[in-house]
Design a protein around this nucleic acid. Structure first.
Lengths: 148, 148
DNA sequence: TGATAAATGCAACTCACTTGCAACTTGGAA
DNA sequence: TTCCAAGTTGCAAGTGAGTTGCATTTATCA
């Protein structure tokens, strides 16, 4: 029976630096949460992070996951992804280009879309509205090949 | 003291037709909810609809507002607008062009953006992913002139 | 090694939204 | 005009995501 926790992965130095710069400690629960986020190729929910930690025998309280995700968001290490599902998803930022997502209305499957057509438009909107734009959310919804 | 309810407005025939076609009844609470939605120039929340009805001396239970908004969404008479505030907003569709929104991170102010750059991109994504795209959500976040 | 600031886990809470059900409207048929 | 079935409403109670308070624990650094 496998009793060791295999979440000890190599964390990029830049991430550790960001944490140190923010006066954050590298606790065991925090390392495990960071590992799950880094391993996940698509945005995941807080509950999913907690579930995976439980399965990996590194159970962490849901509250701790919420607090860590909020902290990582403040440090801009994770992006929130809102797909109008009733809960938020989060994805690691490190080493990934700015992108968007499409989700199937049938099975819920999420696919990365490695594109963003909004740079020019952002400037135009700033000119017209006098807002200073900080970010945007763009998601597509539809039906995947299997669910059509 | 004003005792009459001034929510009796002229409802577009097309809306009434959609309701009839769906086997829906035109109850007093429903008419009042439709009136609030039609009068609102920006997306509003369920709680805001209920508040406005209370002020107009036409109080309707929150549950009834939720149920009506869900029904209007199914009939495609209102659009959901998710600004990641912890609650959804809704806007009447009738007589308004497809558009998007920008919200100030300071004061929460919402402004309509009468544009959409996503038609061509949607076709491209359908080609590449083999999804059939049904809709998209695009919101901008930033700081309005007063909050900068 | 010891001090201290940060982090954790638990319990209890808030708030958006949903569900079950009995009582009440609406709108069409008799 | 009256009656009735389908649809609708309001209330109470429930669900589920996310938050808060607080006592205990842990990482970090002098």
């Amino acid at each position: 029976m496998q009793l060791t926790c295999n979440l000890e992965i190599q964390m990029a130095e830049s991430i550790l630096d960001s944490l140190r710069a923010g006066g954050k400690k590298l606790t065991k629960p925090r390392k495990a949460i960071l590992a799950i986020l880094e391993q996940s190729s698509l945005p995941i929910t807080v509950a999913e992070i907690a579930d995976q930690l439980k399965k990996a025998r590194a159970a962490v309280d849901l509250v701790t996951v919420y607090r860590n995700v909020a902290m990582l968001q403040e440090l801009k290490l994770v992006n929130p992804v809102g797909l109008h599902e009733g809960q938020m998803r989060y994805e690691f930022r490190h080493g990934r280009e700015h992108h968007h997502h499409i989700q199937c209305r049938g099975c819920g499957q999420i696919v990365d879309l490695m594109l963003c057509p909004l740079k020019k438009l952002t400037e135009l909107i700033e000119e017209q509205t006098k807002f200073v734009i900080e970010g945007h959310a763009l998601e597509f919804f539809g039906w995947c090949p299997q669910c059509q």
